[in-house]
Design a binder for these strands. Structure first.
Length: 429
RNA sequence: GUGGAUGUAGCUCAGUUGGUUAGAGCGCCAGUCUGUGGAACUGGAGGCCGGGGGUUCAAAUCCCCUCAUCCACCCCA
């Protein structure tokens, strides 16, 4: 019998994977909720027309779509932004600003590659219904807090503004036709360096590539960098306003203790961003971008016709987990159980059941061995699963109302009176 | 969508210039050890050598096609 193969780009999450993932997700959740964001969930399947929205084009390429048994043309969600737009159009009485987070699987029919799947979790956090810089600052702050909450220390939340990027392009005389590609190139600054950017820009025939590189390479404290750029872009009203906006966001986020930094080279690919854009980058380990977002004031309204301002970000759970694994922030625990009860011999079952109950009541996850195997087999099983402690209950223990607690790592074992089991068990958690 | 690579056991891979019944390690199952795991030993299951076509007396091996997977680009989480 040949084992059926798994679809490319999809993955099995075995206990070890799920335990780590659940841990990361619950940390993220608790940060989000501590900031007052509400959880929501929406269907994985939507009408195809809903998902293509009014823009169509690009989204069709990466979407899984098919006809269901009722002959409806449906598609799997490929992000959480389109569904939330539908929700905002449907439930217009939701009090605004509306702060919600949503962690769900989404699907993209793209070619998979390292760290990128066709089915993956997306974790979105957004604020709807306000254009206040405070809302942008709150998103920046929550990205920062989330990473801190997960235990990262060396990272930055980078902030830029589309107005700044466009101002730079305008000032340098980049024509409209090459604007989009130029921005994509500029965004690669940290990957290919200033020379690389200049080279690629020149290859595209972009004028004054050197000047662009000079402007986007400005680094340092926002208090210095922003005035510098303001000087360079003084002729561009929109860019100057954008810089003021960034200044406010950075100050507000900074006041909330966010690790925030202005980076004029940050672009973010999504064309729907209308204002500030964000990106969280890990420096240690050097994984790069683990979250991205920005303000998108024109997207949410596509289903209702009313403009609904929005700002938010999306965390890449898989990349975050990869990073945590790399620097040993996640232990590779393969089991939830802290104790496994091994029982055998005459009259041991009733005591085993009592023990399981007691240990569970003391709040410790306890696995009662439920196969038939001798003591050796049961211990082997515990060992293989990586359960840290076992409780041995045989004939002798049953007679004397005791339990043998064994530490699987050290091999030490201790005889415990059943009456004291609860107390001892709670130490094992 | 573009470019590159690879398909042999559940997994990682050997398999010589084409030559009999295709191998190893790990894993899996069973057994030895009869109240103590990670070990050892013994035995066992498991492969149309990705699929199709061609060359040849003879193909896992050479040629063509196809499918699948992986990596990079594009784009993004």
């Amino acid at each position: 019998m040949k084992a059926p193969q798994i679809l490319s780009g999809f993955q099995d999450l075995l206990p070890g994977d799920m335990i780590a993932r659940n841990k990361v997700m619950s940390m993220i959740r608790s940060v989000f909720e501590s900031h007052g964001f509400e959880p929501i969930e929406t269907p994985s399947l939507e009408y195809y027309e809903t998902l293509t929205g009014k823009e169509g084009g690009e989204s069709e390429m990466l979407m899984y779509d098919f006809t269901d048994h009722g002959d409806r043309h449906v598609g799997l969600i490929y992000d959480l932004t389109v569904p939330i737009s539908r929700v905002m159009a449907t439930y217009q009485d939701i009090p605004k600003p509306f702060k919600r987070y949503q962690i769900q699987r989404v699907y993209r029919a793209e070619r998979p590659q390292k760290g990128r799947f066709r089915e993956f979790y997306q974790c979105d956090v957004d604020i709807f219904g306000t254009a206040s810089p405070l809302s942008d600052a709150e998103i920046v702050s929550i990205l920062s807090d989330s990473l801190v909450g997960m235990g990262f220390k060396d990272f930055n939340v980078l902030v830029n503004h589309r107005g700044v990027m466009q101002g730079i392009m305008r000032t340098c005389g980049v024509p409209k036709e090459t604007l989009k590609e130029s921005i994509v190139i500029v965004d690669k600054l940290d990957k290919i360096g200033p020379d690389g950017v200049a080279r690629e820009l020149e290859a595209k025939g972009v004028p004054s590539a050197g000047k662009i590189v000079e402007m986007i390479s400005v680094q340092g404290d926002a208090g210095v960098v922003i005035p510098t750029l303001k000087g360079m872009l003084s002729g561009d009203e929109e860019a100057v306003q954008a810089l003021d906006n960034i200044k406010q966001i950075i100050e507000l986020a900074g006041a909330m203790n966010a690790k925030v930094k202005f980076d004029p080279s940050l672009a973010r690919g999504q064309s729907y961003y209308t204002g500030p854009v964000f990106e969280a980058r890990l420096e240690t380990p050097k994984i790069g971008s683990v979250a991205g977002g920005g303000r998108y004031d024109n997207l949410i309204g596509i289903f209702s016709g009313n403009q609904v301002c929005a700002t938010g970000a999306s965390l890449g759970i898989d990349r975050i987990m990869a990073a945590m694994r790399e620097i040993g922030m996640i232990s590779d625990t393969k089991t939830i159980a802290k104790v496994q009860i091994c029982h055998f011999g005459e009259g041991s079952t009733p005591l085993a059941l009592e023990c399981a109950k007691t240990i569970r009541e003391s709040g410790v996850p306890c696995d009662l061995y439920c196969g038939d195997g001798d003591i050796r087999k049961q211990i082997k099983y515990a060992s293989k699963k990586g359960v840290p402690y076992i409780a041995i209950i045989g004939e002798d223990e049953a007679k004397s109302s005791t339990v043998l607690i064994k530490n699987m790592e050290t091999g030490e074992q201790e005889k415990v009176e059943f009456s004291k089991l609860g107390e001892v068990a709670s130490q094992l958690a």
